[in-house]
Design a protein around this nucleic acid. Structure first.
Length: 411
DNA sequence: TCTGGGGTCCTAGGACCC
DNA sequence: TCTGGGGTCCTAGGACCC
């Protein structure tokens, strides 16, 4: 394979930086972005807050205890998706080969742009300058021969970093690099590898492949390659990704609930969120998965059922989810509910054969249109209205992409 | 008032069919 | 009466990422 040059760009404390930029009073202060007023955790915190020990995933009270002057900001999805979209447009000025890994991280394959812009470092400086100029925020950029190493590099200097891993330095840099720094090795994998006396990428790269395969199966070979800094995966640009495989929503309720009518109301709301997203992107699915977490947080279950036909209407999803729920005797009040549609197929537009089905479809489309214009849940099922609480007021998770089906808020 | 929400991929075991 | 193997689809659960 020809030598490639890949950039990985990671927006520093993205949600918090956007908020500080939007509101000058927040600048220079410890702030935390959270996903609503209910039982929620810190999604992102500013560097000022991180310096005081505030971490992603902390409960609000925990963050306040760690840093009493912490300012809590409820996240605003549209601001982030809008900024993210604009930033990715900047990237495309340098190469069409841009892969959005999440709302605040992208890879760029600039192999074919080097002759135009001189060098990857030059491109990185130009990107940094344009993002700072347009949005007042910083990013860390890693430059390397592949995606794995570029991501590793962007993590090495934060905030506002620029790190280059030259091909000839790969082995030296990986030799003493802890394995957990690699994207793909999480806490559990780290524990297993540690038990095999493997702590650094150097050790992983030298490990006998058969030994890794015996322990980890098919990914053993991949692990060894990762330890050696090998990664041939391409940068997949927007529009060329694999089709989406599932669409789901889950929500922790404001309080634990055991009233069946209330549980059903939330289920309907979640089903509608899933259905309208599926319809907007013209997919339907035949497997519905229901997930329930109980009040004690630790016990939960998921059950799925597969239908004979593909569906994406909210009430069909709801009915199926409800039929799963009805097979179960709830053991505790419910803390979280989730509904996911999978086994998807992309649908050609077609009109149902029967009049009543056509009417139903048109009514659904009209409702979806209003929701698209005025925000989801502007129009919804009658039975939702009595409930004061909604499941829809959460900040989007950072994994959402700025474009396509993985984004709800950009129309 | 303890602990969010969106995904992907892999494995294991069972049903069913040829 | 007894035998096999492969393939596909399904459910459940756990790993990983942001």
């Amino acid at each position: 394979m020809k030598q490639r040059t890949i950039l990985h760009i990671d927006m520093n404390a993205f949600f918090a930086s956007v908020e500080q930029q939007a509101n000058p009073e927040l600048r220079g202060k410890p702030i935390a972005v959270v996903g609503g007023h209910g039982r929620t955790v810190i999604t992102t915190s500013s560097y000022e807050a991180r310096a005081k020990g505030v971490k992603t995933g902390m409960a609000i009270w925990e963050g306040k205890r760690t840093c009493p002057e912490l300012i809590i900001v409820v996240g605003d999805n549209r601001k982030y998706t809008h900024t993210s979209t604009k930033i990715n447009e900047i990237f495309r000025d340098f190469t069409p080969e841009v892969e959005a890994f999440s709302i605040d991280e992208s890879w760029l394959d600039v192999t074919h742009s080097l002759s135009i812009f001189g060098s990857a470092v030059n491109i990185a400086y130009q990107i940094k300058a344009r993002i700072r100029h347009s949005f007042g925020i910083t990013c860390s950029i890693g430059i390397a021969p592949n995606k794995l190493l570029a991501k590793l590099a962007s993590d090495m200097q934060k905030p506002d970093g620029l790190t280059v891993i030259e091909p000839e330095n790969v082995a030296r840099i990986l030799e003493r690099m802890p394995i957990k720094e690699l994207c793909g090795i999480g806490r559990n994998m780290q524990r297993h590898l540690n038990m095999m006396s493997i702590y650094t990428c150097g050790e992983l790269g030298r490990c006998d492949e058969a030994r890794l395969t015996r322990k980890f199966g098919i990914i053993g070979k991949r692990l060894k390659e990762m330890g050696q800094g090998i990664d041939n995966s391409p940068v997949v640009q927007y529009g060329e990704e694999d089709d989406v495989k599932s669409v789901g929503h889950s929500s922790t309720l404001e309080r634990d609930i055991d009233d069946p009518a209330e549980i059903r109301r939330f289920l309907l709301q979640l089903s509608d969120m899933v259905g309208s997203r599926a319809r907007r992107y013209n997919v339907s699915g035949k497997t519905i998965h229901l997930y329930v977490r109980y009040a004690d947080f630790f016990s939960s279950w998921g059950k799925q059922t597969t239908l004979k036909s593909y569906i994406n209407l909210s009430d069909e999803i709801y009915k199926t989810a409800l039929s799963i729920l009805d097979t179960v005797e709830l053991e505790q009040p419910v803390r979280l509910l989730g509904v996911t549609l999978s086994n998807l197929k992309h649908q050609a537009e077609q009109l149902p054969l029967f009049e009543d089905e056509r009417k139903k479809l048109f009514a659904t489309q009209a409702m979806d249109k209003v929701n698209d214009r005025f925000g989801s849940m502007a129009v919804t099922f009658g039975s939702l209205l009595p409930g004061k609480e909604t499941a829809g007021n959460h900040v989007i998770p950072p994994s959402w992409r700025p474009d396509g089906i993985k984004n709800v808020d950009v129309k």
